[in-house]
Design a protein around this nucleic acid. Structure first.
Lengths: 241, 241, 241, 241
DNA sequence: GATGAATGAGTATTCATTCAT
DNA sequence: GATGAATGAATACTCATTCAT
């Protein structure tokens, strides 16, 4: 699903690459000496990174393009060479970061081999890892704070992040029920609830100043507590059962 | 089991009084020309109500005092008679609404009599009811979206809402463990996780446009699913236990 | 025809009135002492006057709202209290001045009594008088320079100024032909041509720096030359006739 | 009587060369791979042509160098290789086009042989032909609209176009008076007025959308009406004379 | 107390101009 | 010569805040 506008080029593929080393060989097949040229295409990356920072620090409305430009090390006008405006810049920030987030989820899904318990553990660990990432902290605040002003982005986020993660977890739970590892709960419902648990706790971990209820425990402890709780719920035998 | 049933309905009307009906008759019924005058004492309330609406619709930065004034039925200048400025107005909105929210929690806590299961059920029901309230929807968005710009308010919120609610639930869980109703989980941890579950789902229910994972179920079904899940987790006997 | 947008109030009627003396009596019929109140409605007039000056000096695109505000003695923001933006301000300037111009034409038309020659003389004199007015100089430049960017205004101008003036003159010419004062020319064509003659010469008189061909003659001489030429053409008897 | 008939048609193509066809063959026709290269010598011409278009479409202030560059098929930077800046580019556009216009006038003046009536007819026809040219339409708008911001250009235009044309016509009129073809009018005054008539009507013909008074007649009819009127005026015998 | 006209600081956006390649 | 990425000065427009009435 293409949420962004008409301006995007092909920096998509460079997302994970360190911007300071993005070079490209000018392919002259017959040339003896391949020459490296500095890619102006790193500009968008610099701007997007700076924009994510500023947006998440101050919110979209309060973010000043001037700040973003300064932090990206470019002039204000340069932003407009790559993005149609503030709003479009924000769209790109979200879109790009969400895409990156999906990659992570994809990686996590590779751990589907083995027992359902092991698979779920692996997914939970890697997901929580991601949730505690500074990037995710920023995006999550933005999603909660501003996305309702951008319905198309919100839909994109819901479809590609929440639903996707939930489906991944639901699959594992279903497998676990089949294999007898888990009680016969509703896999979809359980997956939704687990997703929610991880989301809030990710948020709380990322703004510990405002989370007195996490006082005294490390992020890893919190994660382990969540996992324990999750497995308890999934393996539960109701008293009267 | 449904203890808090009779009183939740008036939360909204208690918190957001309809500005269009706050009038007072200045002459007796038998007067030929009854004249209505707006109650000056209600000014701050009207403004706060309008402000909550506008803030939650557009965010603090995008909210225009003009809109708030118009919606409150007063002039822009009047706002400054009661509040020092936009930011202070926002502070008051949050403070007042949080205080109102606390009252509710207090009320709910009265249902501590009876079995832990019944008490927890009652609290969960009444709390979820509140979470689905338009007022809460607004506040919750504001809390997630903007509170980090107001550290003092964030602390106030964390202390008085999250911690307090968590303590309430933890108490009930502890009681349930003692009475043998629940497995010997950590009451504080469980309370925190349950709190989180309810918060996210409250949020999701309040912005269903962006919550495809709730498609096909009513808010009440969602609540019941949460409760089932919660009790499963709390009553769990680990397989190997 | 209403060309302007939604903002206009009722300052229309005050057009010719000197802005510095626009006061209004607050009509309290029973009050013993009528009190005068400064009309905020003079603001639009001040702004429109300043805008006409600046627009005609620098053109619409080069005109700075700042300059207009300063010259009107108000702040920049004040302009936006009365006009939706720069373009709308320009529309109002043209509309208002054109309306004023029509009043003049109306006045001139009163001289329709008497001989056609006398009537035409009177109209020509009063029209040329108007053409040499500083206000008209400004408007005429704006019309020629920028109106093509505002098709609705251009149509308004063509209908209400050019066509109207032409019709007035054509009527007099027709009368003169009937009475035998003029040769049997086509009244409409002649009126159009005379209109054109006066328009260019008005323009030339108003920018004499660029009109070396007017060197050595006063505006009144120019006018008389035009009139002589016009009457020559209208009274002409073709040689071979 | 139609003297200048054969040559007016090429004015436009001489002045605005179509940029898309300025190429040169770099190899001989018998070469297997004929390759076309753009003539660098044509750069300035291409830019000037594009600039005239854009300037006349949007006005100097609103014209974007970007558009001019794109239309000229060059990069924005290239413009600065040939012109000092936007203003200087405009100056060159006017100078070059005016010069071209003068050549035309020169050509037209060759038709001074024969009767004054024939000569004047020829000049009028060829001049009006030129006035209706797209190029002239553009220049005329620019002259009226923006030249007052460039006093030196305005003087250049007045001296070389208006005065020169006027002198040409005045000469013919004087000849006609001498020969008895015309009444003893003032040749200079008449020439000025005739010039004015043709200028306005040229303008009106070029923006017929805004000229309801020309509705129903072709440009040629308009021209013939002007000529009839002019000859009427010139051959006039005042009633009382 | 209320009003709403007026203010002006703050910012997104545009575009002529420069310059490294 | 050409390019087009980069710049930053310039400016329309917004809106919180003030204050005379």
């Amino acid at each position: 699903m293409d949420v962004g506008g008409g301006l995007q080029r092909d920096w998509d593929t460079a997302i994970i690459t360190d911007p300071s080393v993005i070079y490209i060989m000018t392919s002259l097949p017959d040339s003896l000496e391949p020459r490296w040229r500095r890619l102006p295409e790193e500009r968008p990356r610099q701007i997007l990174d700076a924009a994510l920072e500023v947006f998440s620090e101050r919110g979209v409305a309060d973010a000043r393009l001037d700040d973003i430009a300064r932090r990206a090390g470019v002039s204000k006008g340069t932003i407009y060479l790559y993005f149609a405006g503030k709003e479009e810049l924000f769209r790109e920030v979200v879109r790009k970061t969400i895409v990156a987030r999906i990659e992570i989820a994809e990686l996590a899904s590779h751990s589907e081999s083995g027992s359902a318990v092991d698979a779920l553990s692996a997914v939970m660990r890697s997901w929580f890892e991601f949730l505690r990432t500074p990037t995710y902290a920023s995006v999550h605040r933005l999603v909660n704070a501003e996305l309702y002003k951008f319905p198309d982005l919100a839909a994109f986020y819901a479809d590609n992040v929440v639903m996707r993660g939930q489906r991944l977890i639901a699959g594992i739970i279903a497998r676990g029920i089949e294999s007898g590892e888990f009680a016969p709960v509703d896999p979809v419902i359980s997956a939704r609830i687990l997703t929610g648990i991880f989301l809030v706790h990710g948020l709380w971990c990322n703004q510990r100043q405002f989370s007195p209820h996490l006082a005294g425990r490390t992020d890893d402890q919190v994660r382990d507590e969540l996992m324990t709780f999750a497995f308890n719920a999934l393996r539960a035998r109701a008293r009267d059962a």
